[in-house]
Amino acid sequence: MYVNKKLLGPGFLALGALFGFLLSRAGATTYDFYAQLFLFQDFQLLWVIAVAAGLGALVHSLIGYRRSSPPKAILTAAALSYKGKPYRRSLVPGSIIFGIGWGLAGACPGTALAMLGEGKLGSLWTLGGFFVGTLLFGLKENFRMNKAVPVQG
């Protein structure tokens, strides 16, 4: 089944809303669950991540891995890729830096967005900072790419 490309945008808006709703119900928009997780007092969010990832692994192994040709996405007919994100040198330091931000702000990118909808306004600052961090990385990459390709003339 193919879907009109113009409908994909609003479709993803609706999917985002569903995801935001579920993040909230899962407790991922409750700041103090992060503190309790990292203080080893309450494992609500560890359960959420572990069960979600475990379910994914189970279903992928039943549907995807064993096929000789990978299945296609139902709506877009895009070939499904089971290849995960690659390793890179900055992965370990980056993930620890991310974790420090995670514990400090009591939110991650997706949950900060859902918190905004719940009226938790501290997430405005976190999201603003998130843009700054993304820009800093991009500017560093700009610099690296400019250096790699010498300007002509």
């Binding site: 994100k85 690659p86 890179r88 900055s90 992965l91 330091p93 980056g94 993930s95 620890i96 830096i97 991310f98 974790g99 420090i100 931000g101 995670w102 400090l104 702000a105 009591g106 939110a107 991650c108 990118p109 900060a112 501290g122 997430s123 600052w125 976190t126 999201l127 603003g128 900072g129 998130f130 843009f131 700054v132 961090g133 993304t134 820009l135 800093l136 990385f137 991009g138």
Partner: peptide, 17 residues
């Protein structure tokens, strides 16, 4: 503090991919 946390989240997620 929250903005700084956000900066770390942004920078860290790009470095980690």
């Amino acid at each position: 503090v929250l903005t700084f946390g956000g900066v770390l989240l942004g920078l860290g997620s790009r470095m980690a991919g």
